[in-house]
Design a protein around this nucleic acid. Structure first.
Lengths: 135, 135
DNA sequence: CTTGACCCTCTAGTGACTACAGGGTGCATA
DNA sequence: TATGCACCCTGTAGTCACTAGAGGGTCAAG
């Protein structure tokens, strides 16, 4: 089994070294063994676990959700109901964010559209923000 | 001119009291006068300024952007080019976020779709995260 | 034997708040 | 007059998910 330094692991997973140490500190990744000179020493299992974390993060799961998913992934003969629930909850959140941002975009676009490129005093963007016409 | 306590201002703008103090601390709002018992005392101008900040925040501008917009709003006879630029830049960011989140939603939905509600070992959601089939 | 790339720990910073802890003030009510 | 409650004050620390830096040790190549 080949041994990896933290830098190797970082390269293999597209993670910064500091982030790996951070994940270890918060208990998301297990403490690896150490070499004689106190360097962290990883194997394939660590690589798999970190890859899991990164893929889940790329899908927008929070670290708490990733922690839960990791815990569930180990209990292979349980029903995957809980996994499904976490994923669906996350999907709902993402969909809500899209709705919110879309409304925001429309409002912003409208405000910008109205700008006649004159002075600040006449600016519709500022007017849209200010509660009174600067009296 | 009616005087407002920080609580009045909070109610009038839908802002938490702590947030108003925070805005003052970071120099986004001017330090108000104080009463004999050291309570902050606000007037209509403070109300206008905080309303401006909140509307800009609701439109998703960062505090740094709000600071810039506030500075620009005071120079009424300048061209509103800079205002327009900030707003357009923000719009671009919002649009990029929508694109990213939409791609994310599609990927998540696909992963969830494939879940056959069996055991964790067979779970397609976990499989989509794990790099190897748990060998 | 020195240079440079890597590794270590520990601390503090980011954005935009939020939440205490530990006090003081003001007003109404019994 | 006491007391209770809602409000105000300062200051500090917590949130999330990292990121950056200080100040040092290790290792391989030339």
């Amino acid at each position: 089994m080949p041994r990896l330094t933290i830098g190797d692991l970082a390269k293999a997973t597209g993670t910064k070294v500091e982030t790996i140490r951070y994940y270890e500190r918060i208990g998301l990744l297990p403490e690896p063994g150490r070499t004689g000179s106190n360097y962290r020493s990883y194997d394939e299992e660590h690589l798999g676990r970190l890859s899991f974390v990164r893929r889940a993060r790329d899908l927008g799961f929070s670290l708490d959700q990733v922690r839960e998913l990791l815990g569930l992934a180990d209990q292979t003969d349980r029903s995957c109901e809980a996994v499904d629930a976490i994923a669906r909850q996350h999907l709902t959140e993402v969909e809500r964010k899209i709705v919110d941002l879309t409304a925001l975009r429309d409002e912003l676009a409208e405000v910008i559209e109205r700008c006649n490129h004159g002075t600040v005093a006449e600016c519709r963007i500022i007017a849209a923000l200010a509660p009174v016409p600067a009296g």
